[in-house]
């Protein structure tokens, strides 16, 4: 519809391939190759091995994997609850309060993750709430970083769902709590699960804040990858990265399944 001639289209597609292949495909492919490379001094690895993957899922790396998943789930849960609550409550609040909430919950995206980490260190190293040195400082930092996405995704979902449903339910005599539980939250379920998926994915890959605040016994996978590559163990680092991606994918699939379950139960009722 834009380029009409066959030769013109072929040219455009060739150009697309020329940009897309090295820019997007090659980096993704190369990590997969590196994860299984045994000895690599030329264009392609001279030998292949699954040793790196085995090592990436054992010992300290396994501990890191568990830490990463726990952190992602914990931080995302907190972010979803707080973000959803804020989004729903802000909707019916007076204009000024709504704007304030909007600003506060959108702000973390504009603050560099290292600064969020630094703030945590400065604020919670002493004083009434002492988090530094515990896993909670990592989880809190992650929650702060991903709460923006939870808030804005649920807000967007609220924009899309028709307020008339809640009004109709209320006019039928449903109590406010009932309207929330049976009408609003179920209608927001797609937004909430989308927000959860995004939050988990982001938290699993977070480096900036984590590297500022992590205590020795709570080292997430991305930090492990960094220490490995920093010591020159790049092939093992790649294997750990692949494990990280696969683990993220599995957790996201489980979230998807959970959503399916909830929806099915809703239908059956």
């Amino acid at each position: 519809m834009l380029v009409w001639s066959r030769s013109g289209r072929a040219f455009v597609w060739a150009l697309f391939a020329l940009v897309f292949a090295p820019l997007v495909l090659a980096p993704l492919a190369i990590l997969g190759i590196a994860a299984f490379a045994g000895d690599w001094n030329s264009v392609l690895p001279a030998s292949w091995t699954s040793e790196n993957i085995r090592e990436a899922t054992a010992g300290t790396n396994y501990d890191s994997l568990v830490v990463s998943i726990e952190t992602a789930l914990g931080a995302s849960l907190i972010a979803i609850v707080v973000g959803t609550w804020a989004a729903i409550a802000a909707r019916t609040a007076p204009r000024f309060v709504r704007r304030l909430t909007d600003a506060v919950f959108h702000l973390p995206v504009a603050v560099p993750s290292v600064v969020v980490g630094l703030g945590m260190l400065v604020a919670f190293s002493d004083g009434p709430i002492l988090l530094n040195g515990t896993k909670w400082i990592v989880i809190a930092a992650h929650a702060v970083l991903v709460v923006t996405f939870a808030y804005s995704t649920v807000s967007a979902g609220l924009d899309r769902t028709d307020a008339a449903f809640a009004d109709v339910a209320a006019s039928l005599g449903a109590s406010a709590a009932r309207v929330l539980l049976r009408v609003r939250l179920p209608m927001l379920l797609p937004s909430i699960t989308a927000a959860a998926s995004l939050a988990i994915a982001l938290s699993m890959g977070e480096v900036g804040a984590t590297i500022m605040v992590y205590p020795a016994e709570w080292r997430t996978l991305p930090v492990s990858v960094f220490t490995l590559t920093d010591r020159g163990k790049v092939l093992l680092g790649s294997a750990v990265t692949v494990v990280l991606l696969v683990a993220t994918l599995i957790v996201l699939l489980l979230v998807g399944l959970l959503k399916g379950r909830v929806e099915e139960r809703k239908r059956r009722r």
């Binding site: 997007v24 090659a26 980096p27 993704l28 190369i30 990590l31 190759i33 590196a34 690599w40 998926s197 995004l198 994915a201 982001l202 699993m204 890959g205 977070e206 480096v207 991305p222 990858v225 960094f226 590559t229 790049v234 680092g237 790649s238 990265t241 990280l244 991606l245 993220t248």
Partner: peptide, 16 residues
């Protein structure tokens, strides 16, 4: 790619 951690690209670049 949007959901990937950014360091993944950097790591890939070291190999490339």
């Amino acid at each position: 790619v949007l959901a990937f951690p950014s360091f993944l690209i950097a790591l890939a670049f070291t190999f490339l």
